[in-house]
Design a protein around this nucleic acid. Structure first.
Lengths: 253, 253
DNA sequence: CGACGGCTTGAGGTAAGTCAATCCACGTGG
DNA sequence: CCACGTGGATTGACTTACCTCAAGCCGTCG
């Protein structure tokens, strides 16, 4: 199996064989499996290693005082759960597995050593973090100035692109394990309302969502509705336009 | 004048004298002034140097297709406008001066050199970026699950703390150049509604806002209303609890 | 089979938006 | 020094997007 972490970072940087081997080793050394619903990292945790998604789907979330859960991001294979570990004292939110997930644990000291020894890795990590920043900014724009309908469209379109990047979305149709309640918590609306917006997307002929599978019928329409501008994902850094991210999502962005 | 950038990073890391001197030099070498309302960085710009706030107040914002302006963050002295420059091709949003502002330009190559040569600086920059991430996450929580009233309270309380950090908010009262329209764009509500929420905060005896000056009358009350948890600002990394951030904002967090 | 999690539908209620007029402080020019 | 224009703050009347509560449905799994 290809390593999704290396794959992701190589969209932006070039590793030497020896770097690649080190990364491979690190992401195989300690591997843990989590069941759906289980917490990969708890809020307030003190960690001395960081978590790398290998397979599955997780969410970055926080439970608020009023009991509401806010999902801040979805994590797919290749995503680092807790880059902040190098610098900050403790987690200010949690990571939860939404589907059965496999995670690699990498010791913080190993990581620090790696960061110091390899400029390419430092660059790769920076790129990941800065991209995360961009995605969060986009989400703020979402919440601040788009209707719930458009917001839902935007989230689905972003997920389509991110799944395509890993080749799991042939024909704009892919396994979709996210429940409506989770979509609601991510978009900041009520489950009831999320349901209604999804229905509207179906009625408007943009998507088909059934049996844990999402098919985007009218990608162009969905993109237009969502006012989607792929710029914030910064995919265009790919070295090889054919095999790179840009190549794989070409028609979508 | 103390250098706000060094001051900010030293809350978290320790510099040698020579590092400090280099930073001082870089933040003095090329300095530009901007008038209120002027753009410091335009959306889509390609830059080969990055911008450091020295004095004034700026906003990180984006104009959407529907004409709305979303303010994603306020920038105060010591904040780096565009850390992404090292890695990403172009800006996906703009930075605008809200008050007359003085900005230092630092050439990207200088910065890269510095990053490679100084572990402390690399750490400081990481800390800054990861803190920004935390602030953005908090804003998402804001928008997703707090009422407009609480949201406004939260924003004002955060600004109080950030002003206190730089000693400009004696007695919980400070110059407040932000217009209601800007507050509205930052909190994702209508100017009229922003006005009404501010009125309510005044009626409830929490703040006094007049003549471009904000006084927080009842900090405890405002904090409670905002459900403010300072954790996300990660102030507690300060080395010296007396002189550090934590010391200066002590009673607030 | 029953229980349960996830999805769907309906009937109100309310927070926040829209539109539009007014007011006030100010700076500028005649 | 007053007249005027302008940007910001304020107020009121009306509309609407989204929430709340509550019931019912459907597939799956023990």
């Amino acid at each position: 199996m290809v390593n999704p972490w290396i794959m992701k970072m190589e969209q932006f940087t070039q590793f030497t064989d020896s770097e690649r081997h080190t990364l491979e080793r690190l992401s195989r050394e300690r591997v843990v499996d989590y069941a759906a619903g289980e917490d990969i990292i708890r809020d307030g945790a003190h960690q001395n290693h960081c978590h790398l998604m290998l397979t599955g789907l997780a969410s970055r979330y926080k439970i608020l005082r009023n009991g509401k859960r806010q999902i801040m991001a979805f994590l797919v294979p290749g995503d680092l759960c807790d880059a902040e570990i190098f610098v900050l004292k403790e987690m200010d939110h949690a990571i939860g597995a939404l589907t059965p997930s496999r995670v690699a644990l990498i010791h913080a000291d190993e990581m620090r050593k790696l960061l110091r020894s390899s400029g390419a890795l430092a660059e790769g990590l920076w790129w990941g973090t800065l991209t995360d920043l961009g995605v969060l900014r986009e989400r703020i724009i979402d919440h601040g100035s788009r209707t719930t309908y458009v917001r839902m469209a935007h989230l689905l379109y972003e997920l389509l692109i991110r799944y395509r990047v890993f080749g799991d979305a042939k024909d704009n149709s892919f396994a979709f394990p996210i429940t409506q309640e989770e979509l609601a918590d991510a978009t900041g609306m009520t489950p009831v309302h999320a349901n209604r917006m999804l229905q509207k997307l179906r009625r408007d002929g943009l998507i088909v969502l059934e049996g844990r599978r999402l098919s985007v019928i009218d990608p162009k329409g969905l993109k237009a509705l969502a006012m989607f501008d792929a710029e914030y994902l910064h995919l265009d850094r790919a070295h090889d336009p054919k095999d790179g991210l840009a190549g794989r999502v070409g028609d979508l962005v």
